[in-house]
Design a protein around this nucleic acid. Structure first.
Lengths: 210, 210, 210, 210
DNA sequence: AATGAATGAGGGTTCATTCAT
DNA sequence: TATGAATGAACCCTCATTCAT
């Protein structure tokens, strides 16, 4: 444990100017994220997280006061980083479709801890039980929904159509259903490929953006 | 606690001719289901399940060799009883829509343990981690998917259209996305009402059944 | 651990008709008492108490919800059983003196866990810090003080003197000071013998009961 | 926390010519004393002591090799500074009484860390368990006892009486009982006032000094 | 001299599982 | 068949102590 303080294999957050504390927090979160994806919030133990972060269990508590704080932080960060958080760069029907397929592929390949279907499922299940987590999830979800609705209006206008805020809001909701439903499909239908998915997605999205 | 005071309020599985062992198993599963919905698979303790089933913890082990066997059984049963398991009675576009709204309402009201958004989320998250559970979930999911595809073909034919098996399979998949996405929405968008949802659902389903 | 469920060497509370739960609680308290005397409330660990009671740590929690409940129970029991709790059988100057010497001897010999100078000191120190414990200690102390005051009035009347309630209360307080001060002396002056103490005690008690 | 902002409010030990090391030790002891009074020897953490002393935990170990060394030092210092350490200036019956009332008032008001009932109780309880601490406590106690005995002889002679060394020793012991018993009373009888205590104390002390 | 990050053993507590009754 | 007392490993977390800086 003495040496090797380099970044872990899949480390995220490689920004340049971070204090030591910020780097440690990020390191813990990276480790926790991987553990939570592998085992879930409850089954992942602090010892496991510590081992993954290659530090002692006690040290974690210098940066997070309790395990549930890590859970909270992971959930917040995850909802921010999640592909669909960057909805503001969506401008056309094609963009929506591309973004979803991109997320789908990441989920499927399990190559990017910041894009994990298991985590989204777990996190939402947890929100259904824990009011504190529910607050966080709903807060982020509202922001995402609003941005998505704006993007839909933008895309409609580009095609010469008009969409009331309310209509856009409803369609955003359906797009979110689709998106999140794909998280289920990734787990449940391993044989589904992106290429088979694309035309289906295009069809539905077309119906929702006109 | 001394004697059996009859079936619990929300007891399921009241079939007529069951052996004692089957009835006991069902009783345990009913209790476990409620506990799992309330707390999740990990946070629900055997003691809690036993208390809910009004039996001793020890007795549970006469019917299930371990907690994870209960989880397995719950997941199997849940996927069978889940609203969309009865897809064979679906005959028209309107049926699809009605069935989804029905599920949505149950999830929202949390009045029927056999229809729980939290459980579906949890169960799928668990499947993403545990290969044994994954097998079960995928097995059930394939059956559901197939039946749904058949129902879609049936509905299309009724309207005079033709749909290849492959095309039907793809549309079934999108319907499932929508359905499961609603499980997310129930948790994340409490302000969404069935009446606001219906026209949106109709629009998408229309696109998927023509 | 399998056999030997007999009473521990210094077991107290051997009443005849106790439920199993009551016996277990007593067994835990007996063990805790010994541990607390040996190490103090904080340094005595649940593992140590469990080992002393010859049971597993987990089992203790069937009978006490937390360590501080054991501390509470020990303190309550101790203040009840403590020699000076039986103040009502005190009738004369000689009785006061005898009772104190008796306690002194028990403290010195450390042969009776229910009479421990270390415990009284610790318990009172703890009361100075923990409001919950303070309440318990003050509650018991008031009862003891009241009974002691009545005993002093009784003894005075026997000698033909009159003592106002207030005066009796004050003298009771001084007797308590003396008594508790002896707990210090037991620790700090090992060379002090009961025979050397008696005349001194008689002198002071005489001054306080006339 | 960045720099040294001068002595803490209640700092003790302001002697003129102290080495840096001595000043640091005193600073640590002042902080430890306050922590020990507030929380007790075990519950007070090194981190807490360090924060109170406004230094880093690591630095403490340059001046004390272990926590128990701080405890030892605090106990030694406390028994030296404690009110009754200055027994040599006691010359008359009135002096004894005044000194006790003074201590009582300090204990009650909790305004002077060098006069703490909680600490005396804790320290003596600790001595009952730890042989090393017992040695320290007994050593100091003997000195105090001897000085008190001499003071009693002095006071007696002033009134024209004669007191053997042995008799004076016994009476000193009783005075100490009284004194230490008051430490209990401060905790257990908050409603006891100095004015109510004085006549009682005078009565007992009179009996012990004639 | 001084910091405070880091360690890891040990604390209180929970809980799946077993077993005597 | 049924109980629930009992076990002990594992959980989350704290803290005395060390050490690179």
């Amino acid at each position: 444990m003495s040496s090797d303080t380099g970044p872990a294999p899949h480390a995220r957050s490689a920004s340049p100017a971070l204090t030591r504390a910020e780097r440690q927090r990020a390191r813990i979160l990276d480790a926790a994220e991987r553990c939570f994806i592998e085992r879930g919030f409850h089954a992942a133990s602090m010892a496991h997280i510590a081992a993954t972060a290659r530090m002692s269990p006690g040290l974690i508590y210098r940066y997070f006061s309790a395990k549930h704080e890590i859970v909270r932080a992971i959930i917040e960060r995850h909802l921010e980083t999640e592909g669909y958080a960057a909805m503001q760069s969506l401008n056309s029907r094609e963009d929506f479709c591309a973004r979803m397929l991109e997320a789908f592929e990441h989920w499927r390949r399990r190559d990017d801890p910041s894009m994990s279907a298991a985590l989204i499922l777990d996190l939402t299940a947890e929100a259904a039980r824990d009011p504190q987590i529910l607050d966080i999830v709903r807060g982020k979800d509202q922001i995402i929904g609003k941005e998505l609705a704006v993007a839909i209006q933008r895309a409609a206008r580009k095609e010469g159509a008009r969409l009331s805020t309310e209509a856009a809001w409803g369609r955003a909701m359906m797009l979110q259903c689709l998106y999140e439903g794909l998280a289920f499909r990734v787990v449940r239908t391993p044989e589904l490929s992106a290429s088979a998915l694309r035309p289906l997605l295009e069809k539905v999205i077309a119906a929702l953006t006109t």
